[in-house]
């Protein structure tokens, strides 16, 4: 356990010293800030737009960080040969995979927290001068705690995407891993369409294939509750728990396969 923690801390340290990460976070914060300007163009909708753009920026840049750092977690170790000095140390191979995953999660959690603080700061600034009568017309308060539910599910989705990126990283090149992960990310957001494939296609075999894919591909759309939160619709804790449970199961399976693949791999 200690070794896993040491590896995780080292991944976090690597991320912290990576200039790409700072650029992504800075860009995301700028985008959240810029949503304030965009909100000015739409009378009465500014808070909604800021929330919507802020949450989207948090999710999008989180995905970029998860994919671009995630795909290199293991493959970079192999390419740069740093793994030759690390694996002979008293660690199991699975600890390396787990440590890498936990380290990147730590990085993501801190980044998402920073972006959430930036979003709340912009919302506080925008709402501070608004008269009470205008506020009453909003679907949800500016500093709505329900935003944290959306941010929480964004983090859960990022955890799943990181596991996908890490899974591919254990046996593939960074470029292919990035392509596969982005492919799954996009397919995962449209997987509900696969379930209803029989409504648009007559071929039974195509429908069966689509159903099969629906069950295998990660259902990422369920983590997107941005619209509900922005419009003040409730997101139950039960729903969040179910979505998180689904993610935990999927992540556990991906990590188990990643660990198995990695533990049998030759590093020539």
């Amino acid at each position: 356990m200690k070794a896993t923690a040491q590896i995780a801390i080292n991944v976090f340290r690597e991320s912290v010293r990576d200039k790409v990460l700072y650029n992504l976070v800075l860009f995301a914060i700028l985008l959240i800030g810029a949503s304030y300007l965009l909100g000015q163009l739409t009378a009465g909708q500014d808070v909604k737009i800021i929330k919507d753009l802020g949450l989207s920026a948090t999710s999008l840049f989180g995905v970029f960080i998860a994919v671009f750092i995630g795909i290199g977690l293991v493959s970079k170790e192999v390419e740069r040969r740093s793994i030759y000095a690390l694996l002979p140390k008293p660690i199991y191979r699975y600890q390396l995979v787990l440590g890498k995953y936990v380290g990147l999660l730590l990085t993501l959690a801190i980044n998402v927290a920073v972006m959430a603080v930036a979003l709340y700061a912009v919302l506080l600034y925008v709402s501070s001068g608004v008269p009470e009568i205008v506020r009453r017309g909003w679907d949800a308060p500016a500093l709505d705690p329900a935003l944290l539910k959306a941010i929480g599910l964004i983090l859960v989705e990022l955890m799943l995407i990181t596991a996908i990126a890490l899974f591919f990283s254990t046996f593939s090149t960074p470029i292919l891993s990035a392509a596969f992960t982005f492919g799954l990310f996009i397919a995962g957001h449209f997987s509900a369409d696969l379930r209803n494939f029989d409504q648009v296609v007559d071929s039974p075999s195509a429908v069966r294939l689509a159903r099969g894919l629906y069950w295998v591909l990660p259902n990422l759309a369920q983590f997107d509750v941005k619209a509900q939160v922005v419009h003040g619709q409730p997101v139950s804790l039960g729903y969040m728990a179910l979505a998180s449970g689904y993610a935990a199961l999927y992540i556990a399976m991906l990590l188990a396969v990643a660990m198995y693949v990695f533990s049998r791999r030759d590093f020539k």
């Binding site: 080292n10 690597e14 990576d18 740093s82 030759y84 000095a85 002979p88 008293p90």
Partner: peptide, 18 residues
């Protein structure tokens, strides 16, 4: 056993950010 051995790989490369 791993705790009792040391290894230097050929042309070693380490984490260059450390």
């Amino acid at each position: 056993v791993k705790r009792r051995i040391g290894y230097l790989p050929e042309n070693p490369y380490f984490y260059d950010y450390l």
